[in-house]
């Protein structure tokens, strides 16, 4: 098997040989067969839009946002690393916001009420309380670390 000329710069753990091409084409055959079933679906453009948006949602939207936030946090520097005591509770809160956004922002209130007979009013408060809980727990742990470090030095 010949190595690709580029492999001196970024050696790939595998060569892109004809065998891989075969596997890839087999995969595309299944994908094509699946997509053929929705070709006459009037909502196909909507599905494609959502698919493409999903494909770039993390890499081109979410990542730049959380990387910028993280750069701001990592500028903070103290003897015992404070950064993780800030970034981990925020990460937990952000994860919950991302996953449970519809309830927290009361999106789809009508369909929610139709289905459950209830309202989404509780979710925003709960998320804020959880965020406060994460932040205070983290702050308390940080304070404990500082105290322990002082006592031992």
């Amino acid at each position: 098997m010949t190595r690709h000329p580029d492999s001196t710069q970024h050696p790939e753990p595998h060569a892109h040989g004809p065998w891989h091409a075969g596997v890839l084409l087999a995969g595309f055959a299944v994908t094509t067969y699946a997509v053929l079933h929705v070709l006459d679906d009037p909502s196909l453009p909507g599905m494609l839009t959502w698919f493409l948006a999903a494909a770039v949602a993390h890499d081109l939207v979410l990542f730049p946002a959380y990387a910028a936030a993280d750069r701001a946090i990592t500028r903070v520097d103290t003897r015992i690393p404070l950064v993780n005591h800030i970034r981990i509770p925020l990460l937990a809160s952000g994860l919950l916001l991302l996953m449970f956004l519809p309830g927290i922002l009361r999106r789809g209130a009508d369909t929610f009420h139709t289905a459950t007979g209830l309202t989404q009013d509780a979710f925003l408060h709960r998320w804020l309380l959880l965020t406060a809980l994460f932040l205070t727990t983290s702050a308390a742990l940080y304070a404990a670390r500082v105290l322990l470090a002082r006592r031992s030095s």
Partner: peptide, 21 residues
């Protein structure tokens, strides 16, 4: 699962074919 049908297409259809992709 949160009853937010923002996408405007059939969830079952899209989720099934998305799964095969």
């Amino acid at each position: 699962i949160q009853y937010d049908y923002a996408f405007g297409f059939s969830f079952y259809t899209a989720h099934y074919w998305g799964a095969w992709v």
